[in-house]
Structures are given as structure tokens and as C-alpha cells.
């Protein structure tokens, strides 16, 4: 399976955010999107996730499972916000997303306790999400990537609120996902600690 991005451009309001971006990503590969603030990293990821319309160009899948029209159906998107409810317990949040999202063809999610253990927070999934610290919340949001299987992970600044230890833990998760034949597209300031990753340098437009 390959993800094809051809001469993509997007605008917000009147401003052209980026222009003519193309890349190909095969299974087991990662793409790290770098660039200064305002260079359009988040916008690119939102276009890839199907949340924004591209101005021109297209995003498509080659040799993907049948019946999939847009790669977003095979993608996890982890944005700046965690998409978890403070009032519900971690377990309720995770099991909701597990049931709501379901698995993509070709894999299955791991159970809640195992996912929490994978992000180093085993044993507190019975607590309300709001009790957790910012870093713990972010890690639980990553556990969400594990409970429902998606081959493509689209991650926007995944490690922004994390300390060094959690960074390493997250690099391990990404490496594991790539080994199992997944794809990762991440926008980041810091290095993710992924060995062989393609990079895409976003420059933005000089005004």
C-alpha cells in the first residue's frame, strides 16, 4: 500500500498556505514534517486527514484495501487536542473510541489495559481523564492510537507536552507501528527519534 500526494496546495481564506507539495509514502515508512511556526505543517496534516479541502492536487492510496475512497478512512489523526472527555474515566474514553472507530482491515487494536501499559500508565484507566496531568493526558491520547487499528497515523506535534522519558516511549510506539507495516506522518519541532524517516521541510511563503 502506498500513499500518494500529488502537487497539493491549500489556502486559508485568501492566503495560500503551501503550494505544490508531493511525496510518496510506502508501508513501513515515516515522514517527518518540519518547519517554522506558520509554515503550514498543521494545515498540511489536516488536508491529509480530510478535514480541510485542498485547493488543488490530490491525495490517494495505491494498492489499498478495496472500498476505501480517501486515505482518511484508514488514518488516525492526533491533533493539538486530545479528543478525550475530562468527565469520563480513561477507560470509558478509550473504549468509546475503540467501539466508535472500529478497526481498519488488516489489523486489530489491542485491549485497553495493554494500550495503557504501552504508554506507561497501566493501572490508572479507572480514573477520570480530568485527574491526569497534561503529559499523562497526552500519553493516554496516544493510547487511543493503539486501541483501534489504523495503518496511517497522522500526528500533529505529538510530543509537545511530554518529557524526555515519554519522548523515548513514544518513539518506541512509532517504531513498533512502522515494523508492523504502518505509516506515520508527523509534524514536529523536535526529532522524534525515528531512525530512517523521510523529511519534508515546509518553508512557508516569505511575505
Amino acid at each position: 500500500m502506498r500513499l500518494l500526494v500529488e502537487s497539493l496546495s491549500a489556502r486559508r481564506g485568501e492566503d495560500l498556505i503551501f503550494h505544490d507539495i508531493s511525496f510518496v509514502l510506502a508501508t513501513g515508512e515515516a515522514l517527518v514534517v518540519t518547519g517554522p511556526n506558520g509554515s503550514g505543517k498543521s494545515t498540511l496534516l489536516r488536508v491529509l486527514a480530510g478535514l480541510l479541502q485542498a485547493e488543488s492536487g490530490r491525495v490517494s492510496l495505491k494498492d489499498g484495501p478495496s472500498g476505501v475512497e480517501h486515505p482518511r478512512e484508514l488514518s488516525h489523526y492526533l491533533g493539538h487536542r486530545n479528543a478525550m472527555k475530562r468527565e469520563l474515566t480513561v477507560a470509558e474514553n478509550l473504549s468509546f473510541w475503540r467501539r466508535f472507530l472500529g478497526n481498519s482491515p488488516g489489523g486489530s487494536g489491542i485491549d485497553l489495559a495493554a494500550a495503557a501499559a504501552a504508554v506507561g500508565l497501566a493501572g490508572i484507566i479507572h480514573l477520570p481523564f480530568g485527574y491526569l496531568s497534561a503529559g499523562q493526558q497526552r500519553r493516554m491520547a496516544m493510547a487511543k492510537l493503539l486501541v483501534a487499528y489504523r495503518p496511517i497515523w497522522i500526528l500533529d506535534e505529538p510530543t509537545a507536552a511530554l518529557d524526555a522519558g515519554a519522548d523515548r516511549l513514544f518513539a518506541g510506539l512509532v517504531a513498533g507501528h512502522l515494523e508492523r507495516g504502518g505509516m506515520v506522518i508527523a509534524a514536529t519541532h523536535q526529532s522524534l527519534g525515528i531512525g530512517q524517516a523521510k523529511t519534508l521541510q515546509m518553508t512557508g511563503f516569505a511575505h
Binding site: 500508565l121 490508572i124 480514573l127 485527574y131 491526569l132 496531568s133 499523562q136 522519558g165
Partner: peptide
Amino acid sequence: LRRQAARNAGRESLAP
């Protein structure tokens, strides 16, 4: 107690 548990959970797991 539950808040305390949430605080402790992070520390022990991150110890290398």
C-alpha cells in the same frame, strides 16, 4: 486519593 494515584502513576513508569 484518586488524584494522588494519578500523580504517582506517571513517576514510577518513567523511571528508566
